[in-house]
Design a binder for these strands. Structure first.
Lengths: 202, 202
DNA sequence: ATCATTAATCAACACGAAGTTTATTTTAGG
DNA sequence: CCTAAAATAAACTTCGTGTTGATTAATGAT
């Protein structure tokens, strides 16, 4: 054989461990979970766990890294032309729609990780992602430092956290709107409020 | 003696355990901390811990409850007249100033708990507090359901999370503005952006 | 200053999970 | 069918937990 990551047994085992962890996190939160819990929920031997992961932290990190990778991949497809195309119309960025679709596809992960049983460090990662891929696109508008009612960095913190809150709430509500609706909310909120807070427009 | 909570030994011990926990959380996060760590950092016998708390979760809950109690006490002093008084002027609510002073007084706690090593469940508690004591005051403006660009509950989630983000960022930055400045930021942000997002004003 | 009360310390204990190791069984694929 | 590697099984050490009983130290009232 000699193959490693392609072995169907490994793929299957890792998948079951990941699913088991997320299910347990939903119930008890990461803190209360033991490796024993994970493997018994996955129907695997406890020793098998250590064949693939160092500990439960390692397992969570691997899952997280995969999800962030997925987000970065979507971010690559971002077209700067969209900024111009959708500036004045009341339509969402296709890029943002795609993001919400991704959240929906991996709803359990994002729901747990961004929820009350989740990992606050992940929220930070997530915010950094939004800073780079959503906010920095708008920073072209930011040139003059004078006469702004609110410091620029605080406005950024405000907006990023606000957007995170929207995603969290959407997941909590069981995704009661479509990704398209949500992306449109994003667009509207970033176009109506923040620009005025920054003092760039009446 | 027969006194209980007044005994200076108890007060001293509990205080040292609380301080030790917060220091350790800053370093390693709650998850990695053991009761052994806490007591040895506090310079106390491990058995002493169990004289006062059931486990490390219990300890954290007690601290948290005390802090929330402090917040609720401040919230009681809120004067509805402030809403009218400060509506059009560019001045912060005294109530909000007082809140930021409180965050500053207990900066270590809030900084840790709302930070990447903190407890996401606390952020939820904190949001609930803001919902009740900040947002619900403004809900008078909300009467007509039709023709709003963004659903009301999503706007609330947006605003609350945004405000939380401001507090978090302020603590991260080492409180580089005064509580007065911060409260003014709150006032400006809630007055400039959200009302327009709600479609109540051009 | 003395003394009864109670907190804090110390040592020992059983228990459970962690992480490792070795031998054995099962499974995938040439 | 047969080989390589993954999964299982069982044993083992280590470590933290939560508890208990005996001892020492401190507090506050007399």
């Amino acid at each position: 054989m000699s193959e490693n990551a392609n072995d169907p047994r490994i793929v299957r085992t890792m998948h079951m461990l990941r699913e088991a962890l997320l299910e347990l996190m939903e119930e008890h939160g990461f803190e209360r979970i033991t490796v024993k819990d994970i493997t018994s929920k996955a129907g695997l031997n406890r020793g098998t766990f250590y064949l693939h992961y160092a500990d439960k932290f390692d397992l969570l990190e691997r899952i997280t890294e995969d999800m962030m990778q997925g987000l970065r991949q979507i971010a690559q497809t971002f077209d700067p032309l969209d900024l111009v195309m959708h500036e004045s119309r009341d339509t969402p960025f296709p890029f943002t729609v795609r993001l919400f679709e991704y959240f929906g596809e991996h709803a359990r992960f994002f729901s747990v990780m961004l929820g009350p049983k989740g990992d606050p460090a992940f929220s930070v990662k997530f915010k950094e992602f939004m800073q780079v891929h959503l906010m920095d696109k708008f920073n072209e508008f930011h040139h003059s430092e004078d006469r702004v009612p609110v410091p620029w960095d605080y406005l950024m913190a405000y907006l990023i956290s606000a957007h995170l809150g929207i995603v969290q709430y959407w997941l909590e509500q069981g995704r009661d709107y479509t990704p398209w609706d949500m992306a449109l909310m994003f667009t509207r909120m970033t176009q109506l409020s923040p620009i005025q807070s920054a003092g760039l427009k009446k």
